[in-house]
Simulated scan of single mutants.
Amino acid sequence: MILLHRYIAIVDRINRAIGRFAMYGIFALMAVLLWSSISKTFFTPSLWTLEMAQFLMVGYYILGGPYAIQMGSNVRMDLFYGQWSTRRKAAVDIVTVFFLLFYLGVLLWGGIDSTAYSFKYGGERSPTAWRPYIWPIKVTMCFGISLMLLQAVSELFKDILRLRGEEVPTHVV
């Protein structure tokens, strides 16, 4: 059980730090969108703003996802869940987390394959006029999905500890 506690502490600390950093990505996204509006209104429209905004949004979402799971901020169908005891919630979460782990595993497998393809053929580029390289966002996605997998396992371990009646590590503020 000490290993479970240690794993939870390490993964939660890493995902908290990355998630807190990723939160500020919204400001970069706002700056790009503001520049896009200004350049379209007063100057020649910039070619790069739409794709850059999309890339920033992917990074913001995918790197903030594990932190959202850790904080319990993810969307949950709360028809009955809110009324259940902590132990019952933990038991249901143990079952449902395996669906998440399967989904993330398939997503990571496809992401790694797609990233390898991008590197193998000399750097895949977007077919737009700006033509940025695609590999940085693919690497970011693989990294974020890996972090999400680690966090899902951390949540599984927390639920196991709850079912055993043990103390579950709380969020580091």
Score class of each variant (00 low, 15 high):
Met1Thr: 15
Leu3Met: 05
Leu3Phe: 07
Leu4Trp: 10
His5Gln: 11
Ile8Ser: 01
Asp12Ala: 10
Arg16Tyr: 01
Arg16Met: 07
Arg16Asp: 07
Ala17His: 13
Arg20Val: 15
Phe21Gln: 04
Tyr24Cys: 05
Gly25Lys: 01
Gly25Leu: 08
Ala31Asn: 01
Leu33Tyr: 01
Leu34Phe: 12
Ser36Ala: 14
Ile38Ser: 04
Thr41Phe: 02
Pro45His: 01
Pro45Glu: 00
Leu50Asn: 11
Glu51Trp: 09
Ala53Glu: 06
Phe55Arg: 09
Leu56Ile: 12
Val58Arg: 02
Pro66Met: 00
Ala68Asp: 02
Ile69Glu: 01
Met71Gln: 11
Gly72Pro: 12
Asp78Tyr: 01
Phe80Asp: 10
Tyr81Asp: 04
Gln83Gly: 12
Trp84Ala: 14
Trp84Thr: 15
Ala90Arg: 07
Ala91Leu: 14
Ala91Val: 15
Val92Leu: 10
Val95Lys: 02
Val97Trp: 00
Phe102Thr: 07
Gly105Thr: 15
Trp109Glu: 07
Trp109Lys: 13
Asp113Asn: 14
Asp113Cys: 11
Ser114Val: 03
Ser114His: 08
Ser114Tyr: 07
Thr115Lys: 04
Thr115Val: 12
Ala116Glu: 09
Tyr117Cys: 09
Lys120Ala: 14
Gly123Glu: 01
Thr128Lys: 11
Thr128Phe: 02
Ala129Gln: 14
Arg131Glu: 10
Arg131Ser: 15
Tyr133Gly: 05
Ile137Asn: 10
Lys138Phe: 06
Met141Leu: 15
Cys142Leu: 03
Ile145Tyr: 05
Ile145Thr: 14
Leu149Gln: 12
Gln151Pro: 14
Gln151Lys: 06
Val153Ala: 13
Ser154Asn: 09
Leu156Met: 10
Lys158Gly: 06
Lys158Leu: 07
Leu161Ser: 06
Arg162Ser: 15
Leu163Gln: 11
Glu166Ile: 04
Glu167Pro: 02
Thr170Ser: 03
Val172Ala: 05
Val172Arg: 07
Val173Gln: 04
Val173Arg: 05
